[in-house]
Computed example of a mutant assay.
Amino acid sequence: MGLFKHVANGIISVIISVGITVALADEEDGPWGLGEVALSVAITAFLSGFFTSYFAK
Rank of each mutant, 00 (worst) to 15 (best):
K5V: 12
K5A: 15
K5E: 12
H6G: 09
V7W: 03
V7K: 05
A8C: 07
A8P: 04
N9H: 14
G10T: 01
G10D: 06
I11S: 08
I11L: 13
I11D: 03
S13K: 08
S13W: 04
S13M: 05
V14D: 07
V14C: 07
V14H: 00
I15A: 13
I16S: 05
I16Q: 02
I16K: 02
S17T: 09
V18P: 07
V18N: 01
V18D: 01
V18F: 00
V18I: 04
G19H: 01
G19W: 01
I20T: 11
I20W: 03
I20E: 00
T21V: 10
V22W: 02
V22N: 02
V22K: 05
V22Y: 08
A23R: 03
L24W: 04
L24V: 07
D26T: 11
D26H: 11
D26F: 09
E27F: 12
E28V: 07
E28Q: 13
E28M: 10
E28I: 09
E28A: 15
E28W: 09
E28D: 15
D29E: 15
D29H: 12
G30I: 05
G30S: 08
G30N: 06
G30R: 12
P31S: 11
P31T: 10
P31Y: 11
W32N: 13
W32V: 13
G33A: 10
G33I: 01
G33W: 05
L34A: 07
L34C: 04
L34I: 14
L34E: 10
G35M: 07
G35K: 05
G35F: 07
E36I: 03
E36G: 15
E36Y: 10
V37H: 06
V37S: 00
A38M: 04
A38V: 05
S40Q: 10
S40N: 14
S40L: 12
S40F: 11
S40G: 09
V41T: 09
V41E: 03
V41Q: 05
A42V: 00
A42K: 05
I43E: 04
I43A: 12
T44V: 12
A45W: 02
A45G: 00
A45Y: 03
A45K: 06
A45E: 01
F46W: 03
